[in-house]
Amino acid sequence: MRKTLIVTNDFPPRPGGIQAFLHNMALRLDPERVVVYASTWKRGREGAEATAAFDAEQPFTVVRDRTTMLLPTPRVTRRAAGLLREHGCRSVWFGAAAPLGLMGPALRRAGAERLVATTHGHEAAWAQLPGSRALLRRIGESTDTITYLGEYTRSRIASAVTPAAAARMVQLPPGVDEKTFHPDSGGPAVRAALGLTDRPVVVCVSRLVPRKGQDTLIRALPAILARVPETVLLVVGGGPYERDLRRLADSLGVAPSVRFTGAVPWADLPAHFGAGDVFAMPCRTRRGGLDVEGLGIVYLEASATGLPVVAGDSGGAPDAVLTGETGWVVHGAPPPLAARESADRIVTLLQDAELRRRMGARGRAWVEEKWRWDTLAERLRSLL
């Protein structure tokens, strides 16, 4: 029986989009054929208890390293090779190609027959810097397949690896659970709880960090309120940028029209998407192209919920939008242009219920056609 060793830093209970991607894929593989080797979420009793409780619920074997960050050191590589042999694994899936894919040659010598390395946004950044570009090339040479999220990440990573490695690249984006994210996910109850039942709602679900563009939405609010006066911006998620966002809303005089929910449990996210009339996250590229959006699964989750989307033009975010059909892509920067474009698109949607309905329905159908987890998991099984 061919087993797969998944080697990753990105695994729950550590929160994040990549973590959810890896976990959802692992759950759709045969649990008798999966062994996960992952880092520890965080040190201390609370982190250890949360990790142990999560691991005990999984249908497959999870082995935790003592470190909070796996790196391709000799010790970690020996541990991975030992697990490969102990469990009789013949294939390896690196949850993030960089840097764990550098262990490829050693795991090949230990008996791995198939090596698959998945890339996200940060590998596209690696492709731009000489030192990390060379390491990415080594990963491409030593693995059987490098996967990519969309055209943006594919083109940049392909430029860093050999032509032979580029030819072996296969698209493997995260999927959407269309049974969880759907138009009847409980949005009205969230609106009622927040006192927003009769108000137009623009919702943004994401970590609160500068790249995501929540500040652009706040800067756009004065123009939106001038044309749709009762609009509320519902900011769902937690993160280090919240204090700055609150200060910005105060300085622009729009604080009464912005609601911050803080971090929301994953099980409650579909209802929070459903609380919106429009989903908007005008993400932007930062740090000279080193901080970009890899794909933006939240746009697809919003589409599955039946919402039109307004996305930023950072990295692979446009890959998650059918322009003019499921929503629009706007400039993520500079701030004045981004705010003006975002306001115009959002107002157009808020003022046209039929357009919202049509874009939401097209987005839902697109998710069902292309982005279902089961379809993408089958692609992973074939690669392994």
Rank of each mutant, 00 (worst) to 15 (best):
P265D: 06
L233T: 02
W41D: 02
I146T: 06
S206V: 12
E57I: 14
V330R: 04
T73H: 00
V202C: 01
E57T: 12
F279E: 00
G121P: 00
P222N: 14
R78E: 14
E46F: 15
T68P: 03
A97T: 04
A193T: 07
D277Q: 03
V278Q: 01
L269M: 02
A317H: 04
L172P: 04
A267I: 12
T216V: 10
A249W: 09
P163C: 02
T147D: 01
W126V: 13
L107Q: 06
H272P: 10
F181T: 14
R33I: 13
P13H: 04
P282T: 00
T285I: 10
V202S: 03
T119V: 05
G363D: 00
G253P: 11
A98Y: 14
L295P: 05
T305Q: 11
A280T: 11
A165P: 03
R362H: 08
L115F: 03
I18G: 05
R138P: 15
G288E: 09
D313V: 00
S342L: 01
V7I: 13
H120Q: 12
T162V: 03
V63K: 06
D244K: 15
L107P: 01
G121D: 02
M1Y: 15
A81D: 04
A52T: 07
P12N: 07
P256D: 08
E113L: 07
T40W: 07
N9E: 07
P31T: 13
E178S: 15
R381N: 13
R207A: 11
D55L: 07
